[in-house]
Design a protein around this nucleic acid. Structure first.
Lengths: 157, 157
DNA sequence: CAGGATCCCTTAGGATACTG
DNA sequence: CAGTATCCTAAGGGATCCTG
């Protein structure tokens, strides 16, 4: 399995990323930022410091395992700071560090792009699905993608 | 396994992303953009139209399977356009669509952030590793992360 | 409450071989 | 050359149970 290692190396070594630096930096950051939850947590914490359970409630789909894990990584990278109060019912609060906050603007840039071009993407996918497989119209379930779930009623059960 | 579905739904439904829209759009885009190769391909194609093999050479670690797959997704989402020439040795060229190009600036924003704050992150991780587990100093291999592989000699074999 | 420890399953993605 | 088809592994991540 040294092969895999080599590949990873190559990915880092090579200079084919958003030009600006070699690209490894960017690659690394993306790897870090792009797991299922990091961005969500950062975005949520951007609304203010919060404690564990609170976070969990603000981020619907997350499991406490993943919350813990991701928070740990963020803490370790210096994006969020963790403060534990030595109280009887334990209380721990998380908060975006300045570094963490600095991630928000670029993130917003991406968000902006997403919002702005969402429709085009949807259209493109529709077109693509239509022309490529007109018969096998099970083109749904292919990928949840960007389609709004038709906000039935935003009320929770 | 309807549970998993429910979770996914929740993730999309909920309004806790980079505020601006509900967040589902962003969530979706991130999901789409953040796999291992999408950004790399987009960045590479930003340097000009390219054919399959060329791309493969420009993106070291990628397998042709992943190249194909990711390209297909990008094409389908309208980020890249594919042109096949009916020639004897088949030739296919890929190129960023306007939509695809529009992704570059926000991507650069993120890249900029990465480059700018790389050092801080590294420092934080070093500090974290040092204080949390001073004995088990196998803190390497934890994550390749952002550390430059000490560009031994950028010459390929 | 805030998490650590386990178990387990799904999936991204690499390796390899085959075709038009 | 530009893929498609298979097979298979590592790992991301969910569910659960347990504790200070």
């Amino acid at each position: 399995m040294a092969r895999a290692q080599a590949r990873e190396q190559a990915r880092y070594e090579h200079t084919c990323m958003i030009r600006g630096d070699g690209g490894r930096t960017v690659r690394a950051v993306l790897d870090r930022i792009c797991d299922k939850w990091t961005m969500l947590i950062v975005a949520t914490l951007d609304q203010g410091r919060m404690r564990f359970t609170e976070l969990q409630r603000h981020i619907p789909g997350i499991s406490q395992r993943m919350l813990t894990l991701t928070l740990r990584n963020l803490e370790r990278d210096g994006l969020v700071s963790r403060t534990a109060y030595a109280e009887v019912p334990p209380r721990v609060e998380y908060e975006l560090s300045p570094l963490g906050k600095s991630l928000i603007p670029p993130a917003l840039a991406l968000a902006g792009w997403a919002i702005e071009h969402n429709a085009e993407i949807l259209a493109s996918r529709a077109a693509y699905g239509a022309k490529e497989s007109p018969d096998k119209e099970q083109s749904d379930k292919e990928r949840p993608a960007v389609e709004q779930p038709a906000e039935e009623s935003a009320q929770q059960p």
